[in-house]
Simulated assay, not measured.
Amino acid sequence: MLQLGDEVTLYSLVFVLVLLGTRSPLWSTALTTSLYLFVAMFRFPQLATSRARQVLNPVAGKASAIAHRGGGHDAPENTIAAIREASRNGATGVELDLGFSADGVPILMHDDTVDRTTNGSGPLNKMSFSELRKLDASAKHRFRSKFVGEKIPTLEEAVKECIKLKLTIYFDVKGHPDESAAALKDLYKKYPVLYNSSIVCSFQPKVIYRMRQSDPEVLTALTHRPWSLSCLGDGTPRFSSLWQHHWMMMMDILLDWAHHHLLWRLCGISAFLIQKNVVSQDYVQYWARRGVEVVAWTINTKLEKDYFQEVLHINYITDSLVEDCEPHY
């Protein structure tokens, strides 16, 4: 829960910023009060800590290793083969990316196109499920000869495999808030074990809020990377225009503030998935005081894994369970 001191600091800061911008005590009071009432009326409460711990820490006293995209370095990402390989390699859970075919079938796919991971080409939202099913999801993988002919799975096929292998699922939702919430709600109702073995995550707060609206009993997490609006994962600027780059940097500062002071509370999240470079003992404690667990990504060396598991004692997401590798952005 948000402590009283944190709440006073948050709204005091908002009041001061509005006052500096408007120079009107009346407007500052009105806008700060409106924000307080909005959050109080429309926020979702956090789920019980015991529920969150059951999902996030299924092995008591031990941090969990979560296979990123099913473990995309060890097997073709977001496939049944990857899920099975992650289980064999000792993963506690898997992170899976939710996408949709042109005819609305929920599938596993990270990108907006099929070009990077399959032998096909084109936008995901222009291809029917029957067309997607004909593609080889192992075509671009370094171990393609071992996994030749691997298919793009439906979301339900992946869920059934994870349940069978007793793997925790981190559903990574890229967009389509309404469609994603509906698809996941149906799965949770069909497979109730998911309530205590999975969590829905997204970079987009709207997705998480819509999921809580659809089913308030589903465990959720916000995902965040500082400077994500202005820079790519490797630090390269997204925009060649200098003014546009600096404008998006300002938006990044605002988004970062919102995640840490407002959005987490509005959505009632149980975990915060954050890029590894931000994480420290103080950062973990910051979220612990708010009843939120930190999950770091993407942790791809043994040295990093030892640090996050043995020193920070927090879960981490990794591209490989068996060897050091470069991050997959």
Rank of each mutant, 00 (worst) to 15 (best):
L132P: 03
V114E: 08
A82L: 11
E95W: 02
D115S: 12
T117D: 09
R84G: 06
E131L: 00
G120D: 09
R84A: 15
E77S: 13
G122V: 10
T118V: 03
N89H: 06
A86S: 15
K126D: 13
P76H: 01
N125I: 04
D111W: 14
G93C: 06
R88L: 06
M127E: 00
D111K: 10
V105M: 09
A91I: 04
H110Y: 10
A82G: 05
T118I: 08
P76F: 00
F100D: 08
H110D: 10
T117H: 02
G99M: 14
N89S: 08
V114H: 08
P123R: 13
A86P: 00
H73Q: 14
D112E: 14
K126N: 08
N119G: 09
T118F: 07
D111T: 10
I83H: 05
E77G: 15
M109S: 09
H73G: 01
R116A: 15
S121I: 05
S101T: 09
A86V: 02
N119S: 12
E77Y: 09
E95R: 13
G122F: 15
G90D: 03
N89C: 01
E77R: 06
N119D: 15
N78Y: 10
P123F: 06
I83K: 02
T118S: 14
V94D: 05
G90F: 09
I80M: 10
F100E: 04
G90M: 04
S128T: 14
R116S: 14
T113P: 11
I107F: 13
I83P: 14
N78M: 14
E95C: 12
G90Q: 03
T117G: 08
H73V: 15
A82W: 11
A81L: 07
T92W: 00
N119F: 08
V94F: 01
G99H: 11
I80E: 06
H110M: 10
G72C: 14
G99C: 14
D74P: 13
S101Y: 11
H73D: 15
A81Q: 11
E77T: 05
L96H: 03
D97S: 12
I80K: 03
M109I: 09
R116G: 06
P76V: 01
S87D: 03
I107Y: 03
A91P: 00
A82E: 10
M127Q: 11
D74R: 03
D97P: 02
T92S: 15
E85C: 06
K126W: 00
D103M: 07
R116N: 11
T117E: 05
L108R: 04
E85D: 03
R88H: 06
I80T: 12
E95N: 14
T117Q: 04
V94A: 13
L132N: 00
G104N: 06
D103R: 01
D103T: 07
D112I: 01
P76Q: 02
D74F: 13
A82H: 07
N125Q: 12
L108Y: 05
T118D: 08
L98A: 08
A102K: 15
H73I: 15
R84H: 07
L124R: 03
A102H: 01
E95F: 04
I83V: 15
